[in-house]
Simulated assay, not measured.
Amino acid sequence: MTATAVRRSARTSPSPRKPRPTYRWSSRAFVLPALAVVVVLLYLPFVWTGYLSLTEYDGLGDPEWVGLAKYAEMFTDEGFLAAVGNTLLWVVGTLVLPVGLGLLIAVLAHDLEGSFWYRLPFLLPYAISGIAVGVIWTFILQTDGALTQALRFLHLPGTELRWLLDAPLNTIVMILAATWQGAGVNALLFGIGLQSIPKEPLEAARLDGASGFTLFRTMTWPMLAPLTTVVVGLSIVGSLKTFDIVWGMTKGGPGTSSETLALSMYKASFVDHDYGLGAAIAVFLTVVTVAGSVLYLRRQLAPAREL
C-alpha cells in the first residue's frame, strides 16, 4: 500500500467516538429537587402576582381582568409617590449610616487587642427582631417620650420636635433605629474582611511612609472592595424592602407620610383588600430591586472581568 493510499484511508476511516460522560446527568439530577422548590416557591408565585396585578380582585370570587388599570392607579396615587420617595431615602440613609458606621467601627477596632469584644455591643441589637426594635425606639421617640423628657431635664433644645409625627423627620429617625440594629453586623463583616487582608502590602506601604487615612485610602480600602460590594448590595436590597421597623414605629403614618413600598403593598393587599393594586406594587418593587441589584453588581464586577 502506497503512502497516498494510507493517508486516504486514514482520512476516510471514522475516528473512534469518545464515550459520553454519564456523570453530568447524574450530578444534575441532584439539583432537580432544589430547582423544583425554587420554581414552586418563587417563580410560580411571582407569575401569579403578575397576573393579579392585571385584575380587580378583593379575595372573593374570581379576579376580573382590568389590564394596566392598577398600574395607572398606582402611579397616580400620591401615597404611592410618597412611598417611593421614602424608600429612596431609606436606600441613601442605609448606605451612609449602617454601612459607613460599620466600616468605621471595624477599622477602629481592627488593631486593638480583643477587637471582637469592642464590636460585640454593636452586634447585639442585630439579634433583636425589627418589630422589637420598633417598640423600643417608639418608647424613646414618641410624643413626650424618653428622649423628649431627657432633653427637657437637661435643658437642651429639641423638646418641641415631634419625632414620629412630622415628615421626613419620622423617616430619618427610623433610619437611625435601623442603624442601631444593623451597624454591628456590618462591622463584623468588615472586620472579617480586614483580617483576610495580607499584612505584607500594608507593611511595605508603611515603610514607604503611608499611614492613617492615606494608608486606608490607598491600600486597605481597595483590598476591601470585594467585601464592600457584598455588604452594599445586601444593604440596597434590604432597604428597598424595609417593612418591620416602619410598621412597628409608625405603621406608615401619620397618613402615608412614612410609608415605604413594602408597607404600601401590605396595606393595599391586607388592609384595603385590593389585591390587584397590592400585586402591582409588589411587581414594581420586585422589578426595581432586581434591576438595581443587577446594575450595581455589573458596575462593581466589571473591573474584575476586565483584568
Rank of each mutant, 00 (worst) to 15 (best):
N170A: 15
S235E: 10
A178E: 08
A291R: 02
N86P: 08
Q142F: 03
V84C: 11
D244T: 06
P201S: 11
G212E: 09
P19T: 10
P21W: 05
L227Y: 05
L97D: 05
Q149F: 03
A150D: 00
L60W: 12
M1D: 08
G212Q: 09
T220D: 12
T159K: 01
V40L: 15
N86V: 10
A204D: 12
L161R: 12
G102S: 07
I197D: 14
A178G: 14
R8D: 13
S235L: 01
A177F: 00
A34L: 15
V99S: 02
A262R: 02
V6G: 03
T12N: 12
A146Y: 04
L164Y: 00
A69T: 12
S26A: 14
S196V: 08
T228E: 10
V96Q: 03
V185K: 05
V283K: 01
L194Q: 11
R7T: 11
T87M: 00
L88W: 09
V66H: 07
T138V: 00
R20C: 01
S269M: 10
T242W: 00
T143F: 08
T159I: 03
I245M: 10
L227S: 06
G182K: 01
G85P: 04
F30P: 05
L141I: 01
P33G: 11
V230W: 05
A183N: 02
L68W: 05
L188W: 09
F30R: 05
L207C: 09
I136N: 04
L156K: 04
R162T: 06
N170Q: 15
G134Y: 03
L263V: 12
L215K: 06
Y296E: 09
L165S: 14
H273E: 11
G79L: 02
T138N: 13
V287Y: 03
V133T: 15
G233S: 15
A304P: 01
V92E: 03
V37H: 07
D208R: 09
A127C: 08
R299P: 00
G102D: 08
I136C: 01
V246T: 12
T94W: 08
F153W: 14
V107E: 13
W25C: 04
G278H: 12
L297H: 06
A72W: 02
R24V: 14
K199I: 13
G292E: 02
W163P: 06
L307R: 14
V39E: 06
I245Y: 03
K251D: 13
A82T: 14
T250S: 03
P226F: 06
F153Q: 08
D244R: 04
L161Q: 13
L227W: 09
A204G: 08
R162H: 14
W221R: 14
S9T: 08
A177E: 01
A210P: 07
R299W: 15
R299V: 10
G184T: 07
F80I: 02
